[in-house]
Structure formats: C-alpha cells, structure tokens
Design a binder for these strands. Structure first.
Length: 139
RNA sequence: AUCGCAAGCUGGGCAAUUGCUACUUCUGAGUUUACUCAUGGAGUAGAGGAAAGUCCGAACUCCAAAGAACAGAGUGCCGGGUAACUCCCGGGGGUUAUAAAAUUAAUUUUGUAACUACGGAAAGUGCAACAGAAAAUAUACUUUCUCAGUGUAUCGAGAUAAAGGUGAAAUGGCAGGGUAAGAGCCUACCGCUUUGUUAGUAAUAACAGAGGUCCGUAAGGAGUUCCAUUAAUUUGGAAUCAGUGCAAACCCCACUUGGAGCAAGGUCAUGUAAAGGAUACUCUGCAUGCAGAGUAAAGUUGUUCGCUUUAUUAAUCCCGGGUAGACCGCUUGAUUCUGAUAGUAAUAUCAGGGCUAGAUAAAUAAUUGCCGUUCCAAUUUAUUGGAAUACAAGAUUCGGCUUAUAGGCUUGCGAUAUCA
RNA sequence: GCGUCCGUAGCUCAGCUGGAUAGAGCACCAGAUUUCGGCUCUGGGGGUCGAGGGUACGAAUCCUUCCGGGCGUA
C-alpha cells in the first residue's frame, strides 16, 4: 500500500457495502459539527481501509459537490497513516459526508476548511476502536 | 475619447511536488503462450459554450414484419436550406412607436425601429359578464320629422336611424346631393369584393376594368325598402358591396405521425432448480391422437381489421427465490481545421491536413511560486499592500432552441465633448 | 439517464368547459356569554393565485419560457 496513495482497492465500489455502512454503521461527528462519519467492519479479511465520500444533493450544485468529495479524498489521503497501524484483519468501511456545511456558507471551499475536521474524525475512530478492543480482550 | 444599444468571438497563462482515470510499453509473477495479476517503472491523453434545462428533431436498438383504417397528437403567410425539425436563411403581409412630406383639421404617403402561432368566422356548434333600447334572429331609450285631436304644450298614430348616450365591439368611413325629417336612397373619394395585364418560383405588389342599378351581354324585371298583411303601393320573397369578435373555444381544411427507449439491446458468469402453477372449450373427419373449422385467451404499449401462438417432456407466461457483477454497445463522426468554388444568405461541393475523455458510489485534483486582468488604499508616480477573477462539470451520440454567465476583443448604429 | 404529475390565505383543500368582490374548514384578532378560562354565538383581518411573456375586451383558468417540489422506471 502506498503511503500517500488512494487507489481503487481503497475505495468502496460495491452497492451492498454502501448499504451495509448505512444500515449498521456507527455515526460520529467532528468537534466543529462540520462533518460526520459512518464506519463499520466488513466481512472479508483483506486488512485494508475502504472509504467513500457522500454528499447530499441539497447541499449544492454538481460543481460544489464534486469539489467537496475531492477535498475529502485528498485530506484522507494525506492523513490515512493515523488508522493504518491499528487495522489487522477485518476491512474497515468508512463514509465521510458533510453535516452542517453547504454551498451558501462556503461558496469557495478550500482544503484547510475540511482537513482539520477529517483528522479529528480519524482520531475519534481510532480511540473508539481501541477501547472496544480492550473491552473484548478483557471479556 | 467616453457612454448606451445590437450582433459576433473569447471564456486567464507558465512551472514544481504529491495523487486519480484510460491507453501504450517495460519489468516481475502465474499459467492455458496470449491472457491474468502487481504498494512496480516510463511515456501520452484527460470537461463546456452552454457539458445545464430536457423544450423539439434525428441516428442507433428492440417490439415477427412495421401492414391498413380510425381515433389521438403535432405543424400552419410564401420560397429555400437540411438526415430531420416547434430550427436556420431570404421574401411578403399585419400591429405598434417615431420622423418627414402632403394637408384647414382628421387622415394619407414615404422612411426607420420593435414585435408578429400570420390557413379557414360565408360548413356547422358554442361563448360574448357589467353597462346599454338592442350583443347577432337585430332593435328603438333620448332626439328629429309628419298627421290628427285639443285644454297650446302635452297626448295619440306613424316615419327615421343622421345626432346623443352604453360598451372592447352597434350591420363600412367621410363629404355633398336629396328629403317632411332621414337613410348606399343617389354621387365623389377612401375602403372592400372580383376580372384581366405586368413583375415574381410563390406569398404578394403595381396598373387597368367591373361591382352601391340600370339596362345589358346576361336571363331576372322591376323598383324599393321592409316586413308581414290588408282594403292596399299589393303581392311575394329576399337580395343586390360585407350577416361583429373569439379558432393559444370545439371544429373544418392541408400536411406530418406505429410504440418504447442505451436502465434500449446482446454475450458470459453466479444461482434457486431438472421447484410449483397455467397453456382452454366446441364441432367435423377418421387410423383414437392427429388434422381441419369456429369460439376464447395472450401478444401486436388507444380501438378495429390483419398477423403470430395455444402441449408432451420442448417452448412461452405467471409466482417465488437469487444476483445487482464483467464484457460488448462506447466513441472515426450528418467529425473538425484551412483554402477554393457556387449562392444575397442559411448552406452545399471539392482539395489538403488532424484524431481530440470514455468514467460507472462515477477520473480530470490538492498545495505552492511567478505572471496576467479589474477594483480599492498608500505613497517614493511606478511601486507596495489588500480584495476580486463568472456561470457552471461529460454519462449512447449528433443538429437546434431556451436559460445562466465576471472580465476582455471586434464590428455597426446613436448621443455627448474636444481638435482640424 | 428516461418518463410523468403538482405549485391558490399561516395549514389542508375547492374554484381551472375564460366574466371581475378568488371561496370553505382549522388557525389568528375583536366583541358577547362567564367571577375567570374553555365550549358556543357574532363580526373582522389576512392572497402580486410559484415567476416572466403572449392570446383575448377580459386570464387563477388558454398557450409558452423559467423556478421549486413529488412520484414512477432495471
């Protein structure tokens, strides 16, 4: 796996994986409430992280939505080493989507507007996974 | 030079690092030796003028073939262009505004600009609120005029549709004659209808004639206006230059039109699963399960006709279950650029050159530096600092239309200022 | 992607074969009743008929272009 790459195998491509994240995933919000993330563990044992950016249709027009998705992907690509170390067997499925931001508030959105929130979300996910693993280990 | 309007064009540039998609190629691995897989390397390419809205038109695919009739839908001045069009180009008519000329005024003519779904209202049906006497079969409120009566300013009988008033709209307009008063009742001009000639492919335009009553070159016969109706102008029936507007009301006429759409459609893989149900009825012939006929059902994406199918291990459909994968379709095309020729133009033809995204929870990005363009502030007057840099992103592909759009460039027209 | 339907008062809807004050229920306001409140009765306010353009004497209604929203479709 490239240290700063984001190839096809690191993205969610299948429809049933998307619906699995939506139905059984756990939701967390960033500290500034700008973004939210949904994550869960998949069934296969590839030992990778798969992400997908999801933007609701009402947040802006196609140009803005495309740009936000690219910014999510870029900021994850630069900071994905936070989560790589703790993944051992199960595939981690992760969806990032905007919570309170839309085109009216940020007509010209740039990377620094979302990168800190993405780092915040990745840290929270890391902590939750580690605490859950400790509980199961104790039991 | 500035400002405004209209039309057309353009839609920031260069570099570095990291990353994504497709293709080519190298390296490595696996084997079926030409395919697959890589934390691999290198190279090339990677959103628009509207990609948008999905408002029209096609290509392409399937529905047996794409057949007939009707219904339905669409289009609607004329000609041309095109694969086709609710598109484009050219021409004509109309409406509105404005300027000039004619003119006592109203109006007319000419020019310019904008708009124009612009076939038929005399095939038929329907609608026309309020107001008004009367709204499509016309009719008579106030007048005006005649006659008769008398109480001399009113009533009665009749004539009239010019004037007033209503309305969006009142049976052509206006002037003169005529008359008791009036009326195409008659006349001139305008308008309208129609015939011919000329120009034009045509829409149409220009010119000449005819048509509102006098006799005829048309068959009808005589005058004039209206309805009934008869003791009276006396027989008959309406008419002879328009009987309003609305067809983006129904409709009529002419032309066009089968339906569905790339989630079309095809191949492969996975999989319930050799699962279950349905595929009818009647008659005739015989060799007793075949043939023929009829009904019925299903399909033919509105209806009818026509056509196809209706059983013995096969096919079709229904129900239930499963997969929501891969590949083809998928990008060389009514293609684009340059030049020549034809044409007023849209466009067409010819010659030469170019290849320019094919993604699929969906690639074309992020950061930084330098330079552009516009605005603001500061001053060292050409520098510094700050801000802004639009609308918006393919999803089978083309031709249009519509809508959004910072800034810049070109051309034309108009206004203002300055100089010669 | 393709195909379809709908926008009327704060809310839910009528009116849409053109005709003038756009109507009903709930909600709101005022008055009456009540010691007060509710129920009830009486009265009132509130609409650029999603936006622009056109046809027509006249448009919520007909035509057309946009804007917003819903539904269906393998």
């Amino acid at each position: 796996m490239k240290r700063f790459g984001l190839s096809k195998s690191e993205r969610i491509k299948k429809k049933n994986e998307i619906s699995r994240v939506f139905n059984s995933g756990k939701r967390i919000y960033s500290n500034s409430r700008k973004l939210k993330a949904i994550f869960c563990f998949g069934e296969d044992d590839s030992g990778t992280i798969k992400i997908v950016p999801a933007v609701y249709k009402k947040t802006g027009n196609a140009v803005w939505r495309n740009r936000v998705k690219r910014l999510f992907r870029e900021s994850y690509r630069l900071n994905k080493n936070i989560l790589i170390d703790i993944i051992d067997e199960k595939t981690l499925l992760l969806m990032i989507s905007p919570n309170s931001i839309n085109k009216k508030k940020y007509p010209h959105i740039v990377l620094n507007d979302v990168q800190d929130d993405v780092i915040d979300l990745l840290d929270k996910i890391k902590n939750q996974i580690l605490t859950q693993r400790e509980k199961t280990g104790n039991l």
